[in-house]
Design a protein around this nucleic acid. Sequence first.
DNA 1: TTTTAAATGTATCGAGTCGATACTTTTAGA
DNA 2: TCTAAAAGTATCGACTCGATACATTTAAAA
Lengths: 184, 184
Amino acid sequence: MSGHSPTTHLLERLSRLIQNEAHASGLKPVQWEILRFLRLANRFSRTPSAVTAYLNLTKGTVSQSLNALETKQLVTKEPVAGDRRRLTLALTAAGQEMLAGDPMDALDAAARSVEAARGEDLSGGLRAVLSDLLRRRGGRAFGVCRTCRHYRPEPGVAGQARCALLNEALTPADSEAICVEHDG
Amino acid sequence: MSGHSPTTHLLERLSRLIQNEAHASGLKPVQWEILRFLRLANRFSRTPSAVTAYLNLTKGTVSQSLNALETKQLVTKEPVAGDRRRLTLALTAAGQEMLAGDPMDALDAAARSVEAARGEDLSGGLRAVLSDLLRRRGGRAFGVCRTCRHYRPEPGVAGQARCALLNEALTPADSEAICVEHDG
DNA sequence: TTTTAAATGTATCGAGTCGATACTTTTAGA
DNA sequence: TCTAAAAGTATCGACTCGATACATTTAAAA
């Protein structure tokens, strides 16, 4: 009959707050999350199916949300050479501009200032909670390229690397991006 | 162009996960949150307007969601003696039963096990982030009765107390419940 | 090579969310 | 008393999101 642990309760309230902030800012929560994902994902991962897997939505929801974002001129879809089923997504200039007014920046500022004031890093504990939860659900972790087992640093050239799975050269920026293929 | 801090990013992902879990479990996210609030709120705070303030929704949304919960027989509405504008909400037995299958229990288990394993309490940091954010927005903190400045412990009788604002006796259970009037 | 299965994305339906706005009734305050 | 504030309801519109059905393209098996 009593409720959840203090930490769970706070995560619930923060989640609600995040929804509120997103709603009160032009776009819908899912639309914001798609824009944020596209900012972070590498070029192999900017596809509808990667968005679907990352946000754990259905293909239908993602398809509709992408249509809405395309209509607002925040995202473009382009066919992929070599596989005519696939699309590559990209943020337009307006999409990047929109992210400059991301309502989540307020939470980011709060988190940074709290962590600075307390000299405490919350990310380790939260990461453990997230991966525990994802493991229970069988979901993927979606890590950053550089931490993948297919990541091969180019010997000699600092920052340069190669993906052994896709056999593609990786720029330093690629290495820090989220990849659908991560670890797999 | 780059994203948010690791902590913010993790809070975003956990928020999405919480939405997913809620959606995949019979009720909608807001409906779950209303049930959870009613479990935690004291008798002065189980009203539509308290729900509205706590979840930062509009009166319309809350009214509709409560109708849905009433139709599902999870919540009842009763008039308040002395003020015919007000309603008191209550969980039915079915509503309490429903909370026994709360999808958020999975996150709660994850949070508890992570905190136990790491010997770390995430709640302090999260509470600071939440109150920082609420302060920026001018929202109320909605604390627990016992921590309110109108809380008056009954001298001599352990656990017994009194609310100096509403002039009501408080049981030990009341003292641990969320109150709309908190601090005000 | 042909057939089958899997993958990618779209279209449509229905219940629900949620801000906005307008409204009624009741209570409190000048 | 008259007015303003408070508590809830009703309705509209854009969007969410699971479910289902569908078309197309690619890969894998026979």
